[in-house]
Amino acid sequence: MDQIDVLKKQLKNAFEMKDLGATKKILGVELLRDSKKGILKLSQHCYIKKVLERFEMVNSKPVQTPLSAHFRLSCNQCPRTEDEKAEMSTTPYSSAVGCLMYAMVLTRPDISHAVSAVSRYMGNPGKEHWRAVKWILRYLSGTADYGLIYGLKGGTEVDVEGYVDADYAGDLDKRRSLTGYLFTLSGCTINWKASLQSVVALSTTESEYTATAEAFKEAIWLRGMVTELGFEQRQVAVHCDSQSAICLSKNQVHHEKTKHIDIKLHFVRLEVSKGVVKLLKIHTDDNLANMLTKAVPAAKLEFCMNSAGICRL
């Protein structure tokens, strides 16, 4: 009898295997299951409450949007004198933005644009930047029990679908544009991003096309991931509200307004021609990615959130 057999014999009646109770929290994310309805909810309610307590915003008056359109953040609002810098040095700006980032990355796509805006000034924040951070916290104080929900829209078919948008020259400092995209799986949000583009776009078309290229790369990766999980999806649909970007993805003819666009972006055309990803026109009113690139009105934000499965749990 070898050592393995001896060990098995010794452990035969030493313990009894049991299934462990379903996990209710991981990395600060609360998992709420309804097995009968086939629904899974992800929430950071407790985490957000602790953040609000930490920055003394529990009793703050809630606001309806993550960032109001009246905030026009720029480097011109950064402290200029030593006294101003000394005053802002006591403000927990970086800590607050870091806490907001954690919520945004895990369960709150709706604050992506706002967090992207305030995170640009972590090196030297001013009073207006701090007011913007507190505005986001006020928004979270009224939506702390919001989160992602999976299963309501899900049917038997696994289907990845994307939405992409760009805000041309939205960055007031370097006039860079903002890319925003959101992907759903069977109608439930699984992936999102809001970030400044690495180069300065020279036209709205270029900014939209650059955003589309980023979304296509993500679509291809998600398609591969779904395939590895055993689900076959021949083509991923990406919705865009820019007719010019859609035309550029199909038209092989260069003209004066687009010849400056870097050739690397034209891999979009290749993927469209291969049938891996299809770029579809969507009205801007129906584009879920709008909330990732700009400050939208409360009604539009509510529509985007409901459509993306971000709701009160």
Rank of each mutant, 00 (worst) to 15 (best):
K18S: 02
V105H: 02
R223W: 02
G151M: 08
V276S: 15
N13S: 14
I39A: 03
L100V: 05
H266I: 05
L222F: 03
T143E: 00
V199G: 00
A117T: 09
V277N: 04
P79A: 10
E161I: 02
H260M: 06
E16R: 12
K25L: 05
E302H: 08
S60A: 15
L27S: 02
T189L: 04
S112N: 02
Q3T: 13
Y146C: 10
S60W: 04
L32K: 15
V268N: 01
M57A: 15
E256N: 10
G21D: 04
L202H: 08
E157V: 12
E214S: 12
S242F: 02
Y47P: 02
C78F: 09
K41H: 04
K50C: 09
C99I: 01
S203N: 09
N287F: 04
F55I: 11
I149T: 14
C247A: 06
K36S: 13
G154L: 08
D167G: 02
T227Y: 12
C304K: 08
C78A: 15
L52Y: 01
R223N: 08
R54G: 12
M291L: 09
Q10M: 11
M122C: 11
V272Q: 13
G309E: 10
S244V: 10
N290A: 14
A96I: 11
T284W: 02
K174M: 14
T189Q: 02
I149L: 13
A298Y: 05
C99V: 01
F15C: 15
L248N: 01
K193V: 10
R176S: 05
Y209I: 07
S74E: 04
I4L: 12
S112H: 01
E232Y: 11
Y139Q: 05
H70P: 00
N306I: 02
C311T: 09
Q243K: 11
R72A: 14
K153D: 12
G224T: 01
F55W: 11
Y181V: 00
R33P: 01
R72S: 13
D241Y: 07
A308N: 09
G230K: 05
T91Q: 11
D145T: 13
K294P: 00
T23A: 14
Q243F: 01
Y163H: 09
D19S: 06
Y209L: 03
S74L: 04
G230W: 07
G21K: 08
K153P: 10
P66G: 10
S43K: 02
